[in-house]
Computed example of a mutant assay.
Amino acid sequence: MRGLSYRYKLACPSLPLRYIQVKRLKVKIYSAPGKNLNLSLRQSHARIRYSASKATQLSISRSLAEVTKGTAVTVNAVLPGPTETESLKAFIESVNPDLSYAEAEQKFMAENRPSSLIYRLAKPAEVANIVAFLVSERAAVINCAAIHAKGGTVQNIG
């Protein structure tokens, strides 16, 4: 919260947030905590901090949506699942140096994301397409939503 407040103060030091007229759409991209019951104690502590930070970010998105109600601004959170970033790709290749990348990715998904319905990593462009839709006029009524782009990795309704 301190960082968000600090950035706001730098941008608008004398204007209360409720009086700012914003014409842009806002999309926050977060990763949501998954469920993994086989965590070591050290990983559990990291997961607690991770989950708390994501809950805070979603709460900030909700607060921003409330502040901008009645305006053309929509605030949504995009929560991507496992995405083929350069760092994840390098990690997968380093763990399985004897396999082709396609085989290593399939092994990673089988061992780490067995509930995936697409059974592959999302491409960054696929996540970007969701963001592009959310900032378009076609998504004008979508506000204060948490959009899960996880390929079915989290088994829940909602």
Rank of each mutant, 00 (worst) to 15 (best):
A145F: 01
A52F: 04
M1L: 09
Q106P: 04
E126V: 11
L39N: 12
N76A: 06
I92L: 10
S51Q: 09
A52D: 07
T153H: 02
I92F: 06
L121V: 02
S136E: 10
G3K: 11
L134A: 13
L88E: 13
S5N: 09
G70R: 00
G152I: 03
T71S: 15
E126R: 07
V27Y: 10
I60P: 03
T56S: 05
R49G: 08
A128M: 03
A104H: 13
L117H: 11
I20A: 13
N129I: 13
L10D: 00
I130V: 15
Q106C: 00
Y50S: 14
K123W: 11
G81E: 00
L39K: 12
I142M: 04
Q106D: 08
A52N: 14
T71V: 08
L15H: 04
P97L: 08
G34N: 05
I60F: 09
Q106H: 06
I147N: 12
E137D: 14
G34R: 07
F91G: 06
E86Q: 10
T71F: 07
L58W: 05
V22E: 03
R2T: 07
G81C: 06
A52W: 04
Q21S: 08
E86R: 04
G81P: 01
A110Q: 12
Q21N: 02
L10M: 05
N38G: 15
P80N: 14
M109W: 00
S5W: 10
L37D: 09
I147W: 12
E126N: 07
A55H: 08
M109H: 04
F133M: 06
S44V: 02
E105M: 02
K28T: 12
S5Q: 11
R7K: 13
K23M: 03
A149L: 07
S53C: 10
A52Q: 11
A146D: 10
L10E: 05
A32T: 13
Q57I: 13
E66P: 05
V22M: 09
S94R: 02
S116K: 06
K23F: 00
T71P: 01
L10Y: 00
K26G: 09
S63P: 02
S53L: 14
E103R: 07
P33N: 14
I29D: 02
P16C: 13
S100I: 11
R18V: 15
Q43G: 02
A102N: 14
K123H: 15
K54D: 04
S5Y: 09
S40C: 12
R120N: 08
A52V: 06
V154P: 03
M1Y: 05
A104S: 14
T56A: 12
L99Y: 10
S87C: 11
T56C: 05
Q57L: 15
Y19T: 10
A122H: 05
P13Q: 12
V95D: 07
S63Y: 08
I20V: 15
V75L: 01
A46R: 05
T153L: 02
N36I: 12
A52Y: 02
G152T: 00
R42S: 09
S31P: 04
H148C: 04
S94C: 11
A128V: 08
N76L: 05
L88M: 14
L64C: 03
V78L: 13
T56F: 06
S136F: 06
T74P: 06
K35H: 15
L134I: 09
P114V: 00
N112W: 01
A149E: 04
E66Y: 00
F108C: 13
L10I: 03
A65V: 01
S5E: 01
S31V: 05
A55W: 07
K150Y: 00
V75E: 01
T83D: 09
L39P: 06
